[in-house]
Design a binder for these strands. Structure first.
Lengths: 256, 256
DNA sequence: CAGTGGTCTAGACCACGTG
DNA sequence: ACGTGGTCTAGACCACTGC
C-alpha cells in the first residue's frame, strides 16, 4: 500500500527542478519511517515491520530499507535485534534507563536511586523557557521540581519545564505514585518520546535554597546542567535545569 | 597485494574452531586498515587508496571494503569526500581544530584564542598518571602546563601529562614557537594521532594559584575536566586536567 | 523449521571534483 | 572524459531466535 517515492523516470524539467532538492531514496524512506514513528504507528518497545515487508510496502529493495533503518538505529531511534526484528527505542528497559543521565559514581558501583517531587505547578511560560520550547509567552507550561538521591544522598536538584498543552493532567500526585524514569512516564502516559538532547554545563556556587535541599554549604561548587530535550522532528519538549553535587559523582563524556 | 583474510572455503573442522571467534569479513578488513593507519602507511591528511584498489588488494568486493571504511568514517578516523577520495583524519584543518574542545562562548561568536606555555618538565610519573597512561611508576612523563585565553581573557588552565618515551625533545621552547592546536603538533612532530577521548567533569572551587593565573577570586566555581586521550588501538597517550572558567563560556554536549 | 536481521557479492548508474 | 565515492538493486548465504 501507498506512495512510492519518486526518483527516476522523471521528465527532464522535473528532474532539473528536483535536482536542487535531490535526496537519495533511502533518505526519503527514512523520512517516511520517521513520520510513522512520530504518528505513533509503531509504539516504543514494539517491533516495526520486517525489512522485506517495508521494502514491498515502499516498492524499493531491501537494501534501501536497510540503509534507512541503519541510520535510524545509529541515532538510537530504532534498535535492531538479530533474529527477532527491529524495535522502537524506549526509555523503559533497564539497559537504557539512564541513557540521558551522564552523572556517574566515582567508584563505579551502581547506587540506589530515589526521587522526591518537591513541586508541580502550571504557570505562564517565562520568556527564556518559552523561547527554548518554541512557545508564545502567554502559553502555559508545567513547572516541576524534584530531588534525586543516590544511596540516600541528595545529589541532583532538577527544575523541569514542559509544554502545558501536551502534558495535561500531570500533577505532583500522579508523579509521586510513579516509580521509574520520567522519560518512560512521558512515553506511556503522554505519547512523547524523547529522542535527543542538548546540554550546556557550567560551574556555579550553591545558593541558599538549593544548598539546603542538597544538604551542602552555601557557596559549594555545583554543576549546572541545562538540558533541552527533543522528540521526533526536532521539536523541543522539555527544558531541564539541574544542579549536580559532584562530591562522589562526576559527569562523564566521550569525545570522538 | 597480500593476505586475503580467511573466511570461506575452510574445511569443517577449521570452520567449527573459528566459529567461536567468528568475525565478519568487513571487520577483518577494518582491522587491517587500522593496522595500516597505526603503522603510518597513510599519514594524517593524506588520501588512502580507492575502494576498488583496496578491494583488489584484499581480494574482497568493493562493498565489503566500503562497509569497513563506513565504520572508520563513523568513528572519525577517516573522512570521505565524494569525487576526491577517503582521507586520514587530522587535527590540522580549521574545520576540526576544536574537535575535542567543548567549551563554547555563550554568545556564539568565535573568540580569538591564545596559548601561553607556563611550564614544561620531565618527571617521574605520579602513580595516578602512570596508571591512566599504562606506564610503570618509574617511567618518565612530560608535564606541561599552559593557559588558554579567549579574547584575551584567561579561561582554561591545563595540566598535561604525556609519556616521555614517545614525546622526546618536547620543550617549553619548541612549544612556545608553535602556533596551533597541540594535537596537530603531536601528529606532525611525534606521529601520535589522538582519535578518541574520555572526560570526567566536576565542579570545583578555584584554589590560590589557579585562581591567580585565571584572574578569578579564590573560591570561584570552576569546571574541572579530566581527559584521557587515546590513539589507534585504544592506547592512552595523554592525560589532561583542565580548569575552565564558565563566566562567559559553557561546556556543550549532545545526548543521543 | 521458518522468519528475522547480518554479511557478501556483482553490477549498474548517479553526483562530484578535476583535468 | 575520467576517477572518486554515493546510491540502488537482486540474489545468495549465514547467524540468531523461537516455535
Amino acid at each position: 500500500m501507498s506512495d512510492k517515492p519518486s526518483t527516476d523516470s522523471a521528465p527532464d524539467t522535473e528532474r532539473a527542478a528536483a535536482s536542487a532538492a535531490y535526496s537519495p531514496l533511502y533518505q526519503q524512506i527514512k523520512g517516511l519511517l520517521l513520520q510513522s514513528l512520530d504518528r505513533g504507528e509503531w509504539k516504543p518497545g514494539e517491533a516495526i515491520p520486517s525489512e522485506l515487508e517495508l521494502a514491498s510496502r515502499f516498492q524499493v529493495s531491501q537494501g534501501t530499507v536497510r540503509k534507512a533503518i541503519d541510520e535510524l538505529a545509529a541515532e538510537n531511534l530504532l534498535l535492531r535485534r538479530q533474529g527477532k526484528g527491529t524495535f522502537v527505542a524506549t526509555h523503559h528497559e533497564a539497559k537504557v534507563r539512564f541513557r540521558f543521565l551522564r552523572l556517574t559514581p566515582d567508584d563505579g558501583k551502581q547506587p540506589v536511586s530515589g526521587s522526591q517531587i518537591l513541586d508541580c505547578r502550571r504557570v505562564k511560560a517565562p520568556v527564556d523557557i518559552a523561547r527554548l520550547l518554541d512557545l508564545r509567552a502567554a502559553d502555559i507550561v508545567v513547572n516541576l521540581r524534584r530531588l534525586l538521591s543516590f544511596d540516600q544522598v541528595p545529589t541532583i536538584l532538577d527544575d523541569i519545564w514542559l509544554p502545558g498543552s501536551v502534558f495535561r493532567g500531570l500533577t505532583a500526585d500522579s508523579l509521586s505514585r510513579y516509580r521509574g524514569p520520567l522519560y518512560a512516564l512521558f512515553e506511556s502516559e503522554y505519547g512523547v518520546s524523547m529522542v535527543r538532547a542538548e546540554e550546556k554545563i557550567r560551574a556555579m556556587a550553591a545558593a541558599g535554597e538549593p544548598a539546603q535541599l542538597l544538604g551542602v554549604e552555601p557557596g559549594t561548587p555545583l554543576l549546572q546542567v541545562e538540558r533541552v530535550s527533543y522528540t521526533y522532528g526536532d521539536r523541543p519538549m522539555e527544558v531541564r535545569r539541574g544542579l549536580y553535587v559532584t562530591e562522589r559523582f562526576h559527569y562523564r563524556n566521550s569525545l570522538n
